[in-house]
């Protein structure tokens, strides 16, 4: 037990109220409001962050469960002066409208491309084994936990595909 959590490389003390979700801890206690709350029930993906390299819904987990963990939020992926490749691609392809689902989409896509690189299969994969590729159908399946009510899906997939191709 260290009672600390690393967020975007900075150490923070875990909250004293055990009811505090990781999402509320980030948004409220740390003021990292880039991570969004769309449903608080694991149904929309707006709260997606990366914990120890894996994407999770931060509303579905309590902050207290992340003793010693390393969390990356949208603020840790890039800044207006130094955006990540996916952040730039979303901007270029207009992969958003209202922008509320966007940090979740970008965090999710960042980790999702790594999952493909690690050859983890999905429902859209032809086989459970072997090389996985970032096809449109794979991206759509793997991103289906991130809802976008503005309906920017076609542009989001275009943005992710571009980054996947560049890094392939």
């Amino acid at each position: 037990m260290t009672d600390t959590i690393s967020v975007n490389g900075q150490q923070h003390t875990l909250p004293s109220d055990p009811r505090t979700s990781l999402l509320d801890f980030l948004r409220h206690d740390l003021g990292l409001t880039g991570t969004k709350k769309g449903c608080d029930h694991g149904q929309c993906g707006a709260c997606t962050v990366i914990v120890n390299g894996i994407r999770i819904n931060s509303c579905l987990t309590l902050a207290a469960m992340h003793d010693g963990d390393e969390v990356t939020t949208i603020e840790g992926l890039g800044t207006p002066d130094n955006p990540s490749a996916l952040q730039k691609a979303f901007l270029e392809h207009d992969g958003f409208q209202c922008g509320y689902c966007t940090p979740g989409q970008i965090c999710s896509a960042t980790a999702m491309l790594q999952e493909i690189a690690n050859n983890w299969p999905s429902d859209a994969s032809e086989s459970l084994e072997g090389e996985m590729a970032a096809t449109g159908e794979e991206i759509r399946e793997r991103m289906s936990g991130n809802l976008c009510r503005c309906g920017a899906y076609a542009n989001i997939v275009a943005a992710i595909s571009e980054v996947a191709e560049e890094s392939a």
């Binding site: 990292l32 409001t33 880039g34 991570t35 969004k36 939020t73 949208i74 603020e75 890039g78 800044t79 207006p80 955006p83 952040q87 730039k88 979303f90 901007l91 270029e92 207009d94 958003f96 922008g99 509320y100 966007t102 940090p103 970008i106």
Partner: peptide
């Protein structure tokens, strides 16, 4: 052209 407020949205710095 790209959205003028777009960078704030993709970096999570736009306040709702």
């Amino acid at each position: 052209i790209r959205r003028v407020e777009g960078m704030a949205k993709v970096t999570g710095t736009a306040p709702y």
